[in-house]
Amino acid sequence: MRAYLAFTKKEFIENLRTYKLLILLAVFLLFGVMSPLVAKLVPEIMQNLGIGGIKITLPEATAMDSWVQFFKNVGQIGLLVLAVVFAGIMSNEFSRGTLVNVLTKGLKRHTVIFSKLTAAALIWTMSYLLCLAVTYGYTVYFWDMGELQHVFLAFFSMWLFGLLLVVLLILGGTLFKTFIGSLLLAGGAVVAMTLLNISPKIQKYNPVTLCGDNTALLTGVKNASDFVPAVIICIALVVVLTTVSVVVFDRKQI
């Protein structure tokens, strides 16, 4: 337990001093501001633009437009930045040979995985909550929030998918020992899930739903029953893939 806390603390120091924490907080803070801004700007720009002399009049932006932007930004570029920042989480240790010292000091191998997962998950949570809080602040300030459905499930789903991404990055880094390997495994998994989503029957079981259809949940177009199976599968995947990482790492020759 003490070794776990010590190594987790080391992970936080690393993320702080190698600017990873700064980058993630800054980027997600930025998305938090951008989402309501874009929602507010788009109708006004369209109105002033007037393509080919035709005046386009869009309805005034609403709180929902702000949330659409939020899920789009976080679910696409946000997750991409998260992946790029954490793709080196395992491979950096392998490529620099820094694990040899700590492992020969008696650090259990599974502790390495759990510490890294803990730190990355906490940083993702902080970034996500910051982004959410900022967008929320602007949205209540500018618009009437109206009736939102399934609020917790919609926001929790996006967070859970981010966590799955972190676990995939750790597994990829453990398997291939490289930055690219980590990124490719996580990217490949997301692409595969997106392809599977073409079949409507699979959608409600597919974790990728958790970062794609959140606004449909907020507006009530989709029901909790369309999301809960995917949530359960996603949680199961997080547990299983973490276990696989531990097992694979235990057998790695370093």
Partner: peptide, 11 residues
């Protein structure tokens, strides 16, 4: 800091 980390790991 590094020695401290090592010390905590070895208990």
């Amino acid at each position: 800091e590094y020695l401290w980390l090592c010390g905590e790991i070895t208990g």
